[in-house]
């Protein structure tokens, strides 16, 4: 078995023997389920109002009125739960001195970082797959288009991946899990706010840079069903760069 595979298996196992993955997944699924319900209920109220006003049953765009708000809110929930999923990954190894085992074994730091990231991404993807119960359950009763939903899921997966890599970086900086989570939160919220700052400085070069750095605009495109290379590049490059930073942090700790 490759060293990465061994680390992925070990991390997955430790996700499922500790309650963290279950709690995070439960909270996430409960909230997204409730969100979906609220969005659908709101949409049906609206269509009832329109029925009364117009006298005929309107064609309501479910993609627009139900799924888009659900995906935006899902992104906010992810901002809050993803760092919890990653806080343990390096902080605990350092605290329990098990990092010593990894760094004295014939595995590279890249193997370790990638292995941990892939394991976290797998758990996260599983969580997302379970949240797809809402559109699947709705499909027999309503008309909507699947492609934008699939691209939105791609967006969530990529943005979640970016959040996970940021969480991994936060965890590599400390041996205290609480500090790891706060650092990751801070960084994610900061980049989130870049989107708003970009609007404030709209039209200037600074505004453009800030908007580009924030994941919001890129995510927005995917939720709308627009798959553009530049948005995919943003997420993939962001993930690779953040993992690279994590690698540097772990490598530099070797010298101390």
């Amino acid at each position: 078995m490759s060293p990465v595979g061994a680390i992925v298996r070990k991390e997955l196992r430790s996700y499922f023997v500790s309650p963290v993955a279950y709690v995070v997944a439960s909270v996430f699924l409960l909230l997204t389920g409730l969100l979906s319900f609220l969005a659908i209920a709101t949409a049906s109220n609206r269509s009832m109002q329109l029925l009364r006003v117009q006298g005929s049953l309107p064609e309501l765009n479910l993609n627009e009125f139900v799924f888009r708000p659900v995906f935006y809110n899902m992104a906010v929930i992810l901002l809050l739960v993803v760092p919890i999923l990653t806080m343990r990954l390096f902080a605990e190894e350092k605290k329990l001195k098990t990092m010593e085992l990894l760094v004295t074994s014939p595995v590279t730091i890249t193997d370790i970082v990638v292995g941990k990231f892939v394991a976290a991404l797998t758990v996260f993807a599983g969580m997302l797959a379970l949240s797809a119960v809402a559109p699947v359950a709705l499909a027999p009763f309503a008309e909507f288009r699947w492609p934008p939903i699939l691209t939105a899921y791609l967006g969530i997966l990529l943005m979640g991946g970016l959040f996970l890599s940021a969480g991994l970086l936060g965890s590599s900086l400390t041996e205290n899990q609480i500090i790891a989570v706060i650092l990751s939160f801070g960084a994610l919220l900061l980049f989130w706010l870049f989107g708003w700052a970009g609007q404030v400085f709209a039209g200037t070069a600074l505004g453009k840079v800030l908007s580009y750095l924030s994941p919001l605009d890129h995510f927005d495109q995917l939720v709308k069903g627009l798959v553009a290379t530049k948005d995919l590049v943003y997420f993939v490059a962001g993930i690779v760069f953040t993992l690279f930073l994590t690698h540097r942090v772990i490598e530099s700790q070797r010298w101390r």
């Binding site: 298996r9 070990k10 430790s14 010593e100 085992l101 014939p106």
Partner: peptide, 20 residues
């Protein structure tokens, strides 16, 4: 460097894998 939430077999299997 022990992963205390693992059993002895699980732990040594993991170590064996990363030791190649």
């Amino acid at each position: 460097p022990l992963y205390t939430e693992m059993t002895v077999t699980e732990y040594l299997t993991f170590v064996g894998r990363i030791k190649g």
